[in-house]
Design a protein around this nucleic acid. Structure first.
Lengths: 194, 194
DNA sequence: GCGAATCTTGTCATTGATGACAATTTACGG
DNA sequence: CCGTAAATTGTCATCAATGACAAGATTCGC
């Protein structure tokens, strides 16, 4: 009985434009006018379809986190250390544009309890998935979880350092180190039980 | 022949207040009025003694980086892996307030080439210092540098994860892993030469 | 006390981003 | 073609943060 609703598509366009702007200028540096221009729409339409600024930020955060969580559903479930390493490095910490947006999320999370909790859940799940793969069972030992923790933390730190132009002399060596972390016999029994 | 200059002391007070505000609300969230209130001075004085906003941000960045570089001059120069580990974790990645400010610096560095370069120099030096301690010589092998890289990246990632409330089941286990990274015989010769 | 440099106060204009909203146009069902 | 809900345009007020600056007060050497 009326004009057909195209709100959802418009929302998607606007959020995609917002994400592009955030990757380029950050959350704080992106104005509604920036997003509107990037989306090729007048600013009033951005407000009409999404709402005020807080609504827009929340919508983008949801979109980003949902996309991140979606990646886990494509998780292989088991595999060699090489598989795990490739998955973590190539899928989770690889795309530079995505990484910039992730850093923006981290920054927001510094002063947003709810976001911090959600972000924590994502990384906890990454660690748990890696540990599950390592142990090939559903409830891996704390020792395995901590080795997964260290492998993911190492990958995380490496990804951040890459932004500063700091890279290892040999990336293959870092990969070898990570493989050792993921191997069963990395630490002596004595060290593991500490 | 005139009123005595107290500009330097005032500058210090203002920058200290600015740092407090940045730790609390971030660079983007801190206004000149916030700083002025924190310092107990009218806003016009902040402008008088430091200048405009860009001047203030640059002054704080200088202050922070100089303080960070200062820490290296207290570096022990050599020591056991335990010493290194304690130094890196307790001195570089320990203080929570400082860490928040460091994260703010990282965020700024995303879109500030000069800052990114300076920040990179700091972390490169940390890695080089660790590698020098490990090898106990001035020009450590690339292999040693990469192990130092991985140890520092792991510490970095661990510190960031702590903000999300993500901690290993046993911090001691992470410490043991780090010690292994710093040990000479961590990787086989074959892996090292990759 | 006086000149001079420095500090201090207070106010005003500008700017950029946001929120609000009236007026108009579009596209569909009947 | 007509009513209606949705979409679209354009404009205006507000608000916070900044920058600029005039006017006055302080403290020194002389």
């Amino acid at each position: 009985m009326a004009r057909p609703r195209i709100g959802q598509e418009r929302r998607e366009e606007i959020l995609a434009a917002f994400e592009t702007c955030v990757a380029r200028k950050g959350f704080a540096g992106t104005t509604l006018a920036d997003v509107a221009q990037e989306a090729g729409q007048p600013r009033s339409l951005v407000r009409y379809f999404i709402g005020n600024r807080a609504d827009m930020v929340n919508a983008l955060i949801d979109r980003l986190l949902l996309r991140g969580e979606e990646q886990f559903r494509q998780w292989p479930g088991h595999g060699t250390p090489e598989d795990m390493h490739r998955f973590v490095l190539d899928r989770i910490f690889a795309d530079q544009t995505t990484n910039i947006v992730i850093m923006e999320l981290w920054h927001l999370a510094l002063r947003d309890d709810a976001l911090r909790t959600r972000l924590a859940a994502v990384y906890k799940q990454v660690i748990l998935e890696v540990a599950t793969m390592m142990a090939d069972e559903n409830d891996p030992h704390p020792e395995v979880q901590d080795r997964a923790f260290s492998a993911v933390a190492l990958a995380f730190g490496t990804a951040f350092f890459r932004y500063l132009g700091i890279a290892p002399a040999s990336p293959a060596r870092i990969r070898a180190i990570t493989h050792r972390l993921l191997d069963h016999d990395f630490l002596s029994a004595q060290e593991l039980e500490t």
